[in-house]
Amino acid sequence: MKSINYPANLLPADGESYYFGRILSEQEEKKFFEILLKEVDWKQDEVIIFGKRIVTKRMTGWYGEKEFEYTYSKITRKAKIWTPELVELKNLVEEKTGLKFNSCLLNLYHTGEEGMSWHSDAEAELGKQPAIASVSLGAQRRFVLKHKSSGEKIELQLEPGSLLLMAGETQKYWLHRLPKSKKIKEPRINLTFRNIKK
């Protein structure tokens, strides 16, 4: 994985997370944001919490090279086939990371009042040491990682047009979240490129 010149690992132990900063120009970032906002088949996200089906304000889109089925939060979704813009972004992420991805889960947060609570992406379909490459478009948001045992936290600001890669044993030992913020009024699109194991 180190054949490409990676930035420093953000994590002190038990995993690998790399923040590449901006990989898109301001113009490119705005272009992709506007196209994806209009063209992705956005659906309200559903999760099951304590046996109750909750519909979230956050919206999601699920795309891939095949109609992969992916189950998270006890809800199963079937992927739509890549759009040209998603293929373009996937190719850029693969060039930057030296890794291959076959699917992408997109999240749309309308304002800072929508976020994600502590979780890890440890679904069986992703395999034992999943690599997840996260591209941020739109509003800058705070992102936090927390070690499952020690509680140690790592915080960073995800800039528009930036790339974050979580790999190795990160999902096994660390949780992550996107905290809410009433100060942020602008939307954010987050693309999480992944590999669904056949």
Rank of each mutant, 00 (worst) to 15 (best):
R188K: 12
L89G: 06
R177A: 13
A131C: 12
K78S: 14
Q171Y: 08
K128T: 12
Q140K: 15
F50V: 00
G151F: 04
K128L: 11
W82F: 13
L178D: 01
E159L: 15
L191V: 10
K100W: 01
A167E: 10
C104F: 07
E95H: 12
G168K: 12
W174L: 07
N190K: 03
K96F: 04
V144Q: 08
K153G: 02
K153D: 01
A167F: 01
K52S: 10
R141T: 03
K78L: 02
Y63R: 02
S134R: 09
Q157E: 14
Y63W: 11
E125D: 11
L165G: 08
N190H: 03
F50I: 00
G138I: 06
L86K: 05
G168C: 00
R53L: 15
E123Q: 10
E65T: 13
V87C: 09
S120G: 13
W174R: 04
S136D: 04
Y63M: 02
M116V: 15
W62P: 01
S120Y: 01
L126P: 06
G51K: 05
L99F: 09
K180D: 01
W174K: 09
S150C: 11
N102S: 10
N107G: 09
S103L: 02
T97W: 04
S73P: 08
T60W: 01
S120N: 15
A79I: 02
E125Q: 13
R58N: 12
S134I: 14
T56S: 09
W82E: 01
E125V: 01
A131V: 02
A133S: 13
L156N: 08
K90D: 03
L137C: 08
M59C: 14
I154L: 12
K180F: 01
S150R: 08
N190Y: 04
S117C: 00
Q129A: 12
E155P: 00
M116S: 09
G138T: 04
K148M: 11
K128Q: 11
T60H: 12
K66P: 00
L89S: 05
L178Q: 06
L86H: 03
K96T: 03
E65M: 10
V87R: 13
T97I: 10
